[in-house]
């Protein structure tokens, strides 16, 4: 599982740093690809733009998706992920400061696997990231990866 990458779509550099630090502190050493807006997240998944030529059959083990993202917002990114053949089963965890009930419902209805409200408190944030990392990297059985030969 160590070779699997985590895609983190997050525009706030402080939150990016805190998230990566929380992973490292809990011995989750997987490579974290950071996309600072929704367009970059989709470019990574689709192998376009700055990620042109990337082998797109290599998909992240989990996507951590902020909702308020520049260029393309999180729910729109989620929608595109669910429509694409290579990524439609990919586990997506919404990780956001929004506590609005409508965001939660919309997130689930669009096919988010899980929704986590970023705790404001540093210790609680670290705990949540730890649990999230272990859950999706270790405890959850990921969807089978589509091989190239299967088209």
């Amino acid at each position: 599982m160590k070779d699997k990458v985590i895609l983190l779509a997050e525009d706030n550099p402080d939150d990016v740093e805190l998230t990566i630090r929380a992973f490292r502190k809990n011995h989750i050493s997987n490579e974290v690809i950071v996309a600072k807006d929704g367009a970059e997240a989709l470019a990574y998944l689709h192998g376009t733009g700055m990620y042109a030529g990337r082998d797109i059959t290599v998909i992240p083990v989990v996507v951590l998706l902020d909702l308020k993202l520049p260029k393309i917002d999180g729910l729109e990114v989620l929608k595109v992920i669910r429509q694409n053949e290579f990524t439609k089963l990919l586990p997506v965890v919404i990780l956001t400061s929004s506590a609005e009930q409508q965001d939660v419902i919309n997130g689930y209805n669009l096919g988010a696997n899980s929704y986590i409200r970023k705790p404001v408190d540093f210790e609680q944030f670290t705990e949540a990231i730890k649990s999230l990392g272990l859950y999706w990297l270790v405890w959850n059985e990921p969807p089978p990866t589509k091989r190239k030969s299967e088209g």
């Binding site: 696997n113 899980s114 929704y115 986590i116 949540a128 649990s131 859950y135 405890w139 959850n140 969807p143």
Partner: peptide
């Protein structure tokens, strides 16, 4: 999510505990 039931007694208890913790206290 999809979680495979571990075979051993202790492993099963631990897995279910982790599952419940994540979905009820983190999610």
């Amino acid at each position: 999510s999809y979680v495979v039931k571990p075979a051993g007694f202790d492993a099963f208890l631990e897995a279910v505990g982790n599952l419940g913790f994540y979905w009820l206290l983190v999610n």
